[in-house]
Design a protein around this nucleic acid. Structure first.
Lengths: 159, 159
DNA sequence: ATGGATGCTAGGCATATTGTCCACCGTACG
DNA sequence: CGTACGGTGGACAATATGCCTAGCATCCAT
């Protein structure tokens, strides 16, 4: 699935100023309103744009500590039962099954380092989790972003 | 900074159906339109909601491979110059400075495993990067989410 | 080359929503 | 007791939306 240069510009525009309506977008991009509407519909239908949800900052809610916790689990149990339990912990923001020495990697947040201990305890308590290893993210010089990728696709995907 | 139960419901509602306007939200939440407007403004002003940008799925763009690359860097150079260079690689979606054996952890995507090699080569080429260690995310049983956290705050933050 | 499908433009129209006011009222708090 | 704050309910003009039509260019397959 590839995207157009216009698609990329549309996504970039909406990322920069998400409050913009379809009409404003069409004005800024110099195309007809119907076109923007069609493009947006197409992007959503294709699954390229999965939503326009509000981006919530855990830090603004007092969750200043971010950590990556990798863990080994009891293999016989499989991955999913453990992941299901982990999903019940609100502070667990993300879970991946991974290659390498560990089996799962998850991103967690906590209010303080002491609070992180509490969260990790909850993870260790999950049935099937054998051992965990925590890495604290001290700083995030590059916060999550997709824009450069989006801008890059039209140059490689087409032609 | 803490949030209200109404704030949490508003965020949850907008996450579920981001296309909703202020008016619809007020109807669904059973409050006045002005209230929703004020709450939204306040959440954005406080930095709890950082934006309403379109969520782009790298996978839908053909970037099916996600990996976490940790790396050691030449300490004398400091973190930032390296992070700046990494930020220039579109496939690098996120960079953290971390505790532990490594210095930086970043999330990268690639079109295929072979393509991942190309991306890692670019990372290794960055001046100041001494060694990298890659972990491929095979599956993501819990994709990034903040909702449970948001729903949890009103119960802990207040009272 | 013809026919058909597709995508963009341009316009029109009724309806819904937005931004911005206002006055009013209860509650919390000094 | 008075004030500040946050919520309600209503109003208004301006704007955006969804949905429609019609014309045109391009690309592709028959």
């Amino acid at each position: 699935m590839t995207i157009d240069d216009l698609d990329a510009r549309l996504i970039a525009l909406l990322t920069a100023e998400p409050r913009l309506g379809v009409l404003e977008c069409s004005r800024r991009l110099g195309v007809a309103r119907g076109t923007v509407q069609a493009r947006l519909d197409r992007l959503v239908a294709r699954g390229v744009v999965t939503g326009f949800g509000p981006d919530v900052s855990p830090a603004a809610l007092g969750y200043d500590v971010t950590a990556f916790v990798s863990m080994e689990i009891r293999q016989v149990a499989g991955h999913d039962p453990v992941a299901d339990r982990l999903a019940r912990i609100p502070e667990v923001l993300e879970v991946h099954t991974i290659t390498g020495d560990s089996d799962l990697l998850c991103r967690v947040v906590a209010r303080t380092n002491a609070d992180l201990q509490r969260v990790i305890d909850q993870i260790v308590d999950v049935h099937g989790v054998l051992r965990t290893n925590s890495i604290i993210a001290l700083d995030t010089p590059v916060p999550y972003r997709v824009l450069p990728l989006v801008a890059d696709v039209p140059r490689h995907g087409v032609r």
